[in-house]
């Protein structure tokens, strides 16, 4: 009796062919994009989105054509942080959706642009929300694929994908995207965060084909508002030790700046409006180091 392997087709639906069409559509969309870079961390709350938004701004300020995807399907924040949530909703142009742009010309796509308002949760149409463990991950991966594949990015020098916390998120992106050229892994210098980040980097190194990796140390220091002296927020040296252990570079150290948080809340570009503040200079340094890392690979 024949087995599954002896039968070439699935009887007429060609599900494998439909999935291949999805992959082809994505590959075609990404063909004009030079680099695809994931901004990630295994740990939540370390400032991934802050780094992604300001890295995008620093690159765009230097003349690069940048796209920014909010990979957090359930907790999208880039719409607010980049200011595009307050602009005209994305419009369909031909076979794709035109992304709104920031003041620096960064093209942004996020689930937040499609939700009713700021407090609306992402709820998928289903007979019942219970038992969703079987299909919710598929929905989210499909949504991420569409946010990338169905956006009219045009030619880009770099597409940044801001991923939600969890070491499983980069493998999901790897399943969706045909290539990932680099991963910028964000951490803070706390032992708790560094443990989780270390596991994430090891997972990438052992299981994924990502050619370039680098750490970003966020909240590296705090400048006294009175005298300007920068003091570390955590015992120094921890991020460097992890970087040596993992054999990855530290691309930049971002000092804590309350103005950065306020700019994100208001959807203003911190890098554009405060280019001389220490954190803005650190984002510019990050942009330069990332370009060097990518060009070297």
């Amino acid at each position: 009796m024949k087995t599954w392997h002896d039968i070439a087709t699935d009887g007429g639906s060609d599900v494998a062919g439909q999935v291949a069409v999805q992959a082809d559509r994505l590959a075609e969309r990404l063909s004009d994009i030079r680099y695809i870079v994931a901004v990630m961390s295994g740990k939540g709350g370390v400032g991934k989105s802050t780094v992604a938004v300001n890295l995008a701004a620093a690159l765009a300020r230097n003349g690069a054509r940048i796209g920014l995807v909010d990979g957090d399907i359930n907790g999208p924040s880039l719409g607010r942080m980049t200011g595009v949530q307050a602009t005209t909703p994305p419009q369909r142009t031909g076979g794709a959706v035109s992304p709104p742009e920031t003041t620096l010309g960064v093209r942004v796509m996020s689930m937040a642009l499609f939700l009713r308002d700021e407090t609306t949760p992402v709820t998928w149409d289903a007979p019942s929300q219970s038992g969703g463990a079987a299909w919710r991950g598929l929905r989210e991966a499909g949504a991420l694929r569409e946010l990338i594949a169905d956006t009219a990015w045009g030619a880009l020098d770099m597409l940044l994908v801001d991923l939600p916390p969890g070491s499983d998120r980069l493998p999901t992106l790897a399943d969706v995207a045909p290539r990932i050229d680099a991963a910028v892994v964000v951490t803070i210098p706390s032992a708790v965060a560094l443990d989780v980040v270390g596991r994430s980097v090891r997972m990438i190194q052992q299981h994924l084909d990502v050619s370039s990796l680098g750490l970003v140390e966020n909240m590296a220091s705090h400048a006294c508002p009175h005298c300007g002296q920068a003091d570390p927020l955590y015992p120094p040296g921890r991020t460097d030790r992890l970087a040596r252990t993992l054999d990855v570079p530290v691309l930049a150290r971002i000092p804590f700046d309350p103005v950065l948080g306020m700019a994100a809340d208001e959807g203003h570009s911190y890098v554009y409006e405060h280019p001389d503040r220490p954190a803005a200079c650190a984002f510019t340094e990050l942009a330069d180091q990332l370009k060097l890392l990518l060009d070297a690979s």
Binding site: F114, V122, W124, R139, A143, E146, L147, D150
Partner: peptide, 10 residues
Amino acid sequence: PMEGIRTGLA
């Protein structure tokens, strides 16, 4: 474009 999101969201 965005068919899964467009038709899948409640």
